[in-house]
Structures are given as C-alpha cells and as structure tokens.
Design a protein around this nucleic acid. Structure first.
Lengths: 336, 336
DNA sequence: CTGAAAGCGCTAACAA
DNA sequence: TTGTTAGCGCTTTCAG
C-alpha cells in the first residue's frame, strides 16, 4: 500500500525514527524547530499513524468496548451517544458489541477481550447472565469494567445505575393513589438485578399501602414480542383483569398499548399504564404514557467518565463505586 | 501482564511458534494430532490472541467502522443492529464513530481511518458534507466505502438507499388525495442527497396533480429542536397555514406533534401529518402517525453484506452498485 | 509436516 | 537534543 510510515518520514527529514516518533508525540525532549519540521512533513506526506503498531508496542489500544444486549431501544441508543461523546473527547474509540441477550455470546465477547482489544469495558449484561467468571477474569487481568444499568451481582466494581427500587416504588405508589387495586408488574428475567430491584420497590409500595402482594401479579415476559403480546392479551381477557400495569422495560409498554387496542381495553379508564421508558414520543401517545424516565445519556456519560478515571489513574479503584442517577416519574394521561 | 502468547504456548508444547500459529489457524500444513495438542493447550492456558499483533502483521484489522451523524434516532439504532449482526457473523468488530452532524469531525475520523484502523467503512454522511475528498482518499488507499441512507454525490461507490424520491411522491400524493391543498415540506439540509431526492418527489407529485410548487412551502429545519419548534409554531399561527405537512425525518415529525399541541391545532382535522419515521410507537401516537417507514435494519444488513463482499474479494467492484430498498407508506389516522 | 528467521510500524531504554 | 537498538506478538516465507 505504499503507506507512509514513521521511517519514511524520518528519511525525508534526515532524522531518526525515534526522533520523529517523539516529535509527533510532542515530547519535551525534542526541540521546537524539529517538532515543527516533523509536523510539517507529516502533513505534507499525509502521514497517519498505524494505530495497531502503536497498540502492540504500548500495550494499550485507546479503545473501549461497550457490551450491550441490543441497541434497538431508546435507552441503549441514548446511552451509546453519551458514551461516545466522552470517549471521543478523550481520544478513545468505541467498539460496540451486541450480545443479543445471549450469555454465551456475552462470554465469548468477554473472553476475546482478554486479548487486549480494549483498555476498558462498559457492560450492561444480558437478562440471562448469572455467571460472573468471565468478568472477574478480565478484572484480574487489570482491565477495568464498569457496569451500567444492568449490573451483575458477585462482582465488585463500579456501577452506574438508576434508582430502580425507588422508581418502581414511586410508580406503584402513583397507581395506587390513582385508585388501582390490582397492579400487574411486567417483568423481564428475574435474574437481572434491575428486575429484582424494581420488583422489590413494587412490593414495598404495596405493603406500604396495606395491599397484599400476589405472586401471580408478576408477569414474566420474554424477548419474543409475539409471545408477550399473547400473554398480555390473555391477561386482558381475564375475569379479574388488573386495573393497573407497570411495564418494567420500554418494549413492554408498547406491547401493552398494542394488547389493549386489540382487546378493546381503554387506557386509563379500564386499566392504568405506566412504563419504564425513554421514548421521546411518550407525551404524544394515545393516551400520553406516564413514564419512569431513565437518565440514559447521563448514565452513559457517567459510566464512561468513571471508566476513564480508572484508565487514567491505575490506583483509582472502581471498587464500591456505585453511582445512582435518579429516574423521573412523568405523570401523563395513561394513569389519570 | 504475564500474558500468554503464542511463544509461551509453543514452549509448553515443545513446538515452534510458527507451528502453533499455523495450528491455531487450522492450516492444512499441520497434522491432526498436533493441532489437537495445540488447541488443548491453548484452552488449558486460556490463550487469547493479541488482535493488534495480528492486525499489524497481516495489515488487516477485521474491524469495520460505522460512521454516523448520531445514534439517537430509531433509524440509525436499527441500522447498527443490522450491521452488527452481519459483522459478528463474519467475525468482524464494529467501531461506531459519531460525527454529531459536523463535517469537520467527519473528516477527522475519515482521515484517521487512513491509518488502517478499519478494513472497510460504512458511512451515512452529515447533513453538511459536501467535500468528497477524504472519502476519495480512503478509496484510493484501497479501503472500501459503502454509503447507506445519506450518500455523498461525487463518489463512485456502493450505496444502499431507500427510494427517497418515490416515497416522498407517495406521501405527497397521499396527502393530496386526502384533500390537502397546501402541503409544507419540512426539510433538513438541502445539500443532502436524501433531502434533495425527497424534495424532488414532493415536487413531482404536486406537478402530477396540477398544483403549482411554491418555494416557501419547503421549510428548512435545523438540528436545534428548540429552533425548529419555534418556526413550526410560527407556521401554525399563519393566516394561510398549510393543511398538510411532510416531515422528512423522524425528529421533525415529533416536533410537529409538539407544535400542534402547543398551538391547539388538530391533527388531522386542521392539518394532516406524515413523517419519514421508524418509530415503533407510530401506531400508538395521538393520532396514530402516517409514516414512510424505512427498512433500517435491512439497509444496515445490506450495506454490511456488500462491504463484506468487497472485503472478501478484492476484485469485487463496489462501483455503480446501488441498492434501493423501498420504504413503505403506512397510512394511519394523522392523514385521515 | 515442522522450524528458523524476518519483519509489520511503532515506542522506550539507553547511549551518544 | 538526537540516534541506536531492541522488541511488542503475530504471521509468513523459505528451508529442512
């Protein structure tokens, strides 16, 4: 490819490769005039460094990996935006790796990271993840790992989360105050800590209002939209249909609307709905959806910032570093 | 980091590094038993290859870069999902680079790519991009570039687009048939080919129906939501308010809803609205939004597939390779 | 079928 | 302040 390398630059300048390298790195060992000459020649020959040679030599990649279940919902999209913004600012690159909610894929990706592809990892685990082994392994290798949103128990590292339990409490409390007597909670994988937290908050709110918790009000949902829709519609047709629903993730909220429409159930008259969601369109839905809005962008930024702190300062400990960024209850028509 | 390298593996196995390398690559030069021994040892020592050493040596990174304006809307999110799916399948990694709609940032990223960070590029240009120079430069270096959605004129390479002109035609035609007499077209940067195409389709539909095109019905919009909202509200307050609106990108559709609400304009009674959008919630908006739905995921997949074809076969020419994946008009209440 | 040797492009000791 | 040298970990001739 006749690529221009540091050696070629050096030859043109009658300098050594080392000098050129240092000059490009703006090292204090190099004189002003030389730096200037080097920079000019680099521009003239359109020099671009080979990042992999540098990575190999320095044993750092200036790349972070973001490992996510999927990028097709508002939360993760917004989070990526936040992460990328910080990374770009620090001169880092962002590798996006999707697990498609599969632990196996996740483990494969994590294992691969042992090779040093990324200097640090931001991860939101799959809903199946239970085994922390591959993450521990990375940590032992000295690769900092920061969890955001979906954390994995059994690993002591930084976590950026939102106040899941409290938010669920607020949501439930709100529904009860709006007159709901039987509130269904649409849950994804119970293994997931956010799921667990949200369920806890839900239970506590029930208790606080003297309502007995009924296990069958927790509706386990899947990642199969069709399947969810079927179960939701079935619930809507029941004798004792719930009069309130909490959708613990964005997709489920949309599916509730769909189920209600297909079964001719009116929101909020027949059933009140609240969703954990970052939909920009929440206010314009029919009816406007009451949401627990998560600070996705901020969580992304916070997670990345923390990771870069760890990257910049080897003695900085991520351990026990838990940041809780509160979500916001935005009351709209679906719970009137 | 006491990392286990091919040399260490070799020492443990009493083999040479070359043999181990070949065995790991499943080379036909290596005997079955040896391969097996190597693989077992690799697993036992938890060997993970250093991707950068390999990249440096082979001059390919098994990485593609996706360069996008932003990832915060449904179209690009879905596209990334499609791209990542294919890339993962091919054993490639995906670097996501955001330009934040800035040409300068875009050029910097593109220029950096000359260093060989990625083997191929998928790009959807910013709305400001006019200068194809940095992209040409990459092509000259032999880095395949595939455009998707937002293409840049003046460069001969593969493009995955949707039928922008036709879609806009259909949208306009639909509004006219629904009785609209004055249709406003909310445009983003006119330099952008998709914008241009869509405006063309709009004009043609007007002409086909014998309606005179009025330049002031093209409303230029920005990336500043506040600003757009202000201009939209101003339009809503006009004497001769349009009775139909085409939002040429997703964000603008949402802003129209907002403006209408704040100005007490009823959709579809006072004004009919249609949006280019991939919102999963379109059907549940108030009123349900008539959309031109783009095949985002498919476009992502198609773009990635094409790129990998070029990557896999150096003699495969991306030139003149234009794939048009049609969008779909989904009629809903906002144009009734 | 296996191994020795060279080198991808860069950087970091160390010497001058 | 600049240069020499070695080597990051891997792959690829080429020789055995």
């Amino acid at each position: 490819m006749g690529n221009v390398t540091i050696r070629i630059l050096a030859r043109h300048l009658q300098l050594s490769a080392a000098t050129v390298s240092k000059a490009l790195a703006d090292s204090h060992e190099i004189s002003g005039p030389t730096k200037k000459r080097v920079l000019e020649m680099a521009a003239a020959l359109n020099y671009t460094p080979n990042p992999y040679a540098s990575s190999l030599r320095r044993k750092k990649s200036r790349t972070i990996a973001v490992i996510l279940p999927e990028v097709a919902d508002s939360f993760f999209s917004q989070a990526i935006n936040g992460i990328e913004a910080i990374a770009q600012d620090k001169g880092y690159h962002v590798l996006v790796c999707l697990t498609h909610e599969r632990t196996l894929k996740e483990q494969a990706i994590l294992h691969e990271m042992l090779g040093g592809r990324a200097d640090g990892i931001l991860i939101s685990v799959t809903s199946e993840t239970t085994d922390p082994a591959s993450i521990l392994e990375l940590q032992e290798k000295g690769v900092p790992v920061v969890f955001f949103d979906r954390v994995c128990e059994g690993i002591d590292t930084a976590r950026i989360v939102t106040d899941d339990a409290q938010s669920a409490y607020k949501a439930t409390d709100h529904l009860i105050r709006q007159g709901c007597k039987q509130i269904a909670f649409l849950a994804i994988s119970e293994g997931l800590s956010i799921s667990h937290q949200r369920i806890e908050g839900y239970k506590q709110a029930l208790t606080a209002h003297g309502i007995r918790f009924n296990g069958s009000d927790i509706i386990p949902c899947t990642h199969d939209a069709e399947e969810n829709l079927r179960s939701l519609k079935k619930i809507m047709r029941q004798q004792h249909r719930p009069d309130g629903i909490i959708a613990s993730v964005e997709k489920l909220a949309v599916q509730v609307y769909q189920a209600c429409r297909e079964e001719n159930i009116r929101i909020p008259e027949d059933i009140k709905v609240i969703g954990f969601s970052n939909l920009v369109t929440a206010a314009y839905l029919n009816p406007a959806l009451t949401t627990i809005t998560q600070p996705a962008f901020e969580m992304g930024r916070a997670a990345a910032s923390l990771l870069f702190k760890a990257l910049g300062n080897k003695s900085f400990s991520l351990s026990q570093n838990i940041q809780v960024i509160p979500s916001e209850l935005q009351v709209r028509d679906s719970t009137h």
